[in-house]
Amino acid sequence: MATPRKNVTAGIIMIGDEILKGYTQDTNTYFLCRTLRSLGVRVSRISVVPDEVMTIAEEVASFSTRFNLVLTSGGIGPTHDDITFEAVAQAFGDKLQPHPELEEAVRALGGTGQEKLVQVPSTARLHYGTDPETGVPFRFPLVSVRNVYLFPGIPELQQRVLGGLSDLFRNEGMQFHLRELYVTLEESSIAAILTEAQAHFGRRLGIGSYPDWSSNYYRVKVTLDSDEEAAVEEAQAYLSAHLPPGSLVPFVPNAVEHAGEAVYRLAQSGSSQRPGSRCRFSTSVASPPSQSWSSF
């Protein structure tokens, strides 16, 4: 029996003065959006807020009522400006209190100055993930309150946590399909065709158009995105028929990287290419790196 289709939405709240001031380049938004979409979750809104308890609390309270899932990033460390736990407690009328399991985890980590890590909202839940590569359980849990999940802002830690707890967010009833087409013409010359295509497919499909001025091979990348695989196939056929002949070109992003990976796989397989045979390189969207969080 097929899993019923279900639309699950998410809101992401990035927390930190360093992002708003331009001191830190935000890579977490890209990672979270890409990973959640691969899990069948539709990211509906992203917000960046400063290190202010009231501002964070208001945003969390608002997001929690508007989206199925809320993910916060940052502000859960041991220093004075790590105030996410306090803000989330205020958002839901909770009190901050030490959690026995977190106290034990902090003792296991050793060192000093980490007392703040154990003070969480009174209704907090703890989620212990397992490294999918090694099977080693993480020593420190992810904290959540209601439908709000509080992630560390350090990119490496965040990737490990979500990699080890992906089943918490996986939406089995939804799968998104993406096709990328590369066009040699200027965007203005294909705008009318893309507009007609979007009108033809309506809400079944999203068509994106992204000029690339740095490429000497193509001018526009066109994306076809849908939760219906058939719609993506139909849209590709539609554009192939309506765009000027020869304007669609084959293109493999990061071709050198993919070629290296293919050669490595070929070497590991122990097979060899016969004279005159062709080596075919296939590309796929790589899963986010997932490493053991046992060191934290």
Rank of each mutant, 00 (worst) to 15 (best):
S122D: 06
G270A: 04
E59D: 12
A235H: 00
A105H: 09
C279H: 11
P100V: 04
L205M: 03
Q236K: 12
S271H: 13
Y23R: 14
P155H: 07
T55R: 13
F169A: 08
A57K: 04
F251H: 15
L96R: 05
L39W: 12
L109N: 06
L205E: 02
G111C: 05
I46F: 07
P78I: 08
E187K: 10
P253M: 11
V161Q: 05
G74C: 10
S247T: 07
E186S: 09
L185E: 10
H177A: 02
D225I: 11
S287G: 13
E52Q: 15
R42S: 12
S44E: 14
A87P: 01
I12K: 03
Q97Y: 00
T112D: 13
G173D: 09
V106W: 10
R107E: 10
L96G: 05
S44V: 11
G270F: 06
E233R: 14
M54F: 10
N216S: 15
P211R: 04
H127S: 00
L109D: 01
L71I: 05
Q291G: 09
R278Q: 13
I207Y: 02
S287I: 06
I13V: 13
I83F: 03
V120P: 00
L243K: 01
G11A: 11
S292H: 03
A286G: 12
G113N: 08
A197V: 01
D227T: 08
I12A: 01
F151A: 03
E103H: 02
L32G: 02
Y23S: 12
G111K: 05
P4F: 03
V249A: 03
M1T: 12
G111I: 08
Y218N: 00
T29W: 09
A267H: 11
F201S: 04
D82A: 07
P155E: 11
G77Q: 09
S295I: 13
R42M: 10
L243Y: 00
E187Q: 11
T3W: 12
E156S: 14
E234Q: 14
V161F: 06
I193N: 00
P121H: 09
T3Q: 12
I207V: 10
L205C: 03
L185V: 06
W213Q: 11
G260L: 14
L168S: 01
S209V: 04
K21H: 14
H80V: 09
V148D: 02
I83R: 05
P141W: 06
G75C: 09
R125P: 00
Y210G: 01
D225F: 15
V118E: 06
